[in-house]
């Protein structure tokens, strides 16, 4: 039953996002999961993947362009998801920063959605989603603290967990204390 719900959510939520990106939107419903992690050599192409929940802990994994982010998150919002967290990952070898958005549901249609977006380490600008989820405020500030990702349009992008005058980003892989 849950799997049906996932499929349904997938159909409901993602066709527009799938259709939007210019690169090949691949939809691989691979069951053993754990393969979708970006290979070291080449970054993953944008698109939606159904994941094996038992192996990874979430059902849907969508990678979008920063430009598509607001659109994707609005769709998640419209479907009644709540925001779990926002975080970053520093892919130093690929010279990219990834911002990861986690969403889940309050009802019993268990479905965890991950939205990722990747930016160049040098530029690292992502639009803010505080307009859609007010709760993204602290999460984005935290991600800015740790990775130096600039969330354009954020109302109050000052250090949250780090000291007020912090100019370092400790979770970057090339950070030396």
């Amino acid at each position: 039953m849950i799997i049906q719900t996932i499929k349904q959510s997938l159909v409901e939520l993602f066709p527009p996002v799938e259709a939007a990106p210019a690169p090949v939107a691949e939809e691989t419903a691979e069951d053993e999961g754990a393969k979708k992690a970006p290979a070291k050599a080449e970054p993953r192409v944008n698109g939606v993947i159904t994941c094996d929940y038992n192996a990874t802990g979430y059902h849907l994994d969508a990678q979008v362009d920063p430009d598509q982010l607001l659109d994707a998150v609005s769709r998640i919002d419209a479907a009644g998801f709540f925001i779990e967290s926002i975080t970053g990952v520093d892919w130093l070898k690929e010279n990219q920063l990834e911002v990861v958005y986690d969403f889940a549901r309050y009802d019993f249609d268990l479905c965890r959605v991950v939205i990722r977006t990747r930016v160049d380490r040098a530029i690292s600008e992502v639009p803010t989603i505080t307009g859609i989820y007010s709760g993204a405020n602290w999460h984005e500030r935290e991600t800015h603290d740790f990775f130096g990702i600039k969330f354009t349009g954020h109302p109050h992008l000052v250090p949250l967990l780090l000291p007020e005058d912090a100019d370092f980003h400790p979770l970057l892989k090339d950070f030396k204390a």
Binding site: K35, K36, T87, V100, D102, A104
Partner: peptide, 28 residues
């Protein structure tokens, strides 16, 4: 790979995301 686990702690849903690169330490 990328693994997520949520549990119900006393104050709410505690989630942990492990991004592994196959090493001894978590990548993230």
């Amino acid at each position: 790979g990328d693994y997520y686990q949520a549990v119900e702690a006393a104050r709410g849903s505690f989630g942990i995301r492990i991004v592994s690169d196959g090493g001894k330490n978590a990548y993230r």
